[in-house]
């Protein structure tokens, strides 16, 4: 039994979030909302950490993938769900849930395809160039969305509204748990040792038979997929989305979480996502100081403790040799 601990933990978290979801009416709506934000930020940060932290490909465009996922999922829900319902046996808990899952997957897959498209040409670029290209991609996505027609499916500069509020505690935390499981399992496996190898020394990695291109693309695609899922969750939580909400300052927010948590440390990043999201909520009245504090933190961290606030340790224990 012991060797399946990780799977059991995953299952318990998923069931637990289902339980909390069912009882959600009993909790204070304000705190539930913060909890959902925490979950979405965990997905964003853990997936970005795969790209920026584990693989060392510094991306500043995570919000763009989130945007693609948000738009993909929302458009699917708004345009397709009604047509799907009869096929799924009429509106009911199961049918609605299944349609939502489909919407999320559509958003995630669209984002993954974008991740692949951005990943491919960017592979030749060194750290700082890649950062700018991904930031540029973020801007391109925003500009394209903003210039769509206001009457079309993308909604133009005002974005989309009236997205059904389908996101529940269950969806957010089940996906967050899967995201942590997937990233953690990938990175801690022997195959996954290629990710930090690429980060540490690309030339040495290539000389050890590691297909550096495949690793970078994998990181981008998986990272973008989960960013896309989080976008879909976000859209169906807030019920309105607009291009401006996914500008590169949003990407910076996620980068701040990853850096404070410690690049390459899954546990650290999760804790940072929780702490910073809660902190954000309490600093809401001091919005103008919030970014000021974060920016100073970034600068001081890089000088004093670039590895993040927590010590790095793998969240999933590897099997010890016999």
């Amino acid at each position: 039994m012991k060797r399946y601990t990780t799977q059991i933990v995953l299952l318990v978290v998923v069931l637990l979030s289902l339980g909390i979801s069912v009882l959600s009416g009993k909790f204070d709506a304000y705190y539930m909302d913060i909890a959902l934000n925490v979950g979405i930020n965990i997905i964003l940060a853990v997936s970005l950490n795969l790209v920026n932290g584990h693989t060392g490909q510094f991306s500043l465009g995570h919000a763009a993938f989130m945007a693609v996922g948000a738009y993909g999922a929302s458009i699917f829900t708004l345009e397709m769900s009604a047509r799907l319902m009869p096929m799924l046996g009429g509106p009911g808990v199961f049918a609605t849930g299944f349609a939502f899952l489909l919407a999320l997957l559509v958003g995630g897959l669209c984002a993954a395809v974008c991740g692949w498209l951005v990943g491919m040409p960017s592979l030749r670029l060194r750290g700082d160039y890649l950062a700018i290209v991904t930031l540029g991609f973020n801007e391109i996505v925003r500009v394209i969305l903003q210039n769509t027609s206001g009457d079309g499916v993308f909604g133009g500069p005002l974005g989309l509204k009236g997205i059904p509020p389908l996101t529940t505690f269950f969806w957010v935390f089940a996906i967050a748990a899967i995201c942590v499981y997937v990233v953690g399992s990938m990175v801690s496996s022997t195959y996954g040792r290629g990710f930090p190898a690429v980060r540490d020394d690309e030339i040495a990695a290539g000389s050890m038979g590691i297909n550096t291109v495949r690793y970078k693309v994998t990181a981008f695609v998986v990272g973008s997929f989960f960013a896309g899922l989080s976008g879909g969750l976000y859209a169906h939580l807030r019920t309105t989305i607009s291009p401006e909400g996914f500008n590169f300052l949003k990407s910076f927010d996620v980068v701040v979480i990853v850096i404070l948590g410690g690049m390459g440390s899954t546990a650290g990043v999760i804790i940072a996502a929780i702490v910073l999201t809660v902190l954000n909520e309490f600093l809401r009245d001091f919005e103008q100081y919030r970014m000021l504090v974060f920016s100073i933190l970034l600068i001081v961290m890089m000088i004093v403790r670039p590895q993040g606030l927590l010590p790095s340790f793998p969240i999933l224990n590897r099997k010890k040799s016999a």
């Binding site: 950062a131 970014m291 890089m302």
Partner: peptide, 26 residues
């Protein structure tokens, strides 16, 4: 940060940029 990895310097630069923007806003 002069002898640190370039990525650290880039992150610091982002921090400085945000710092100037939000101080100016204040």
């Amino acid at each position: 940060l002069r002898d640190r990895p370039r990525l650290n310097v880039l992150i610091t630069a982002i921090g400085v940029s945000l710092f100037i923007e939000y101080s100016a806003q204040l």
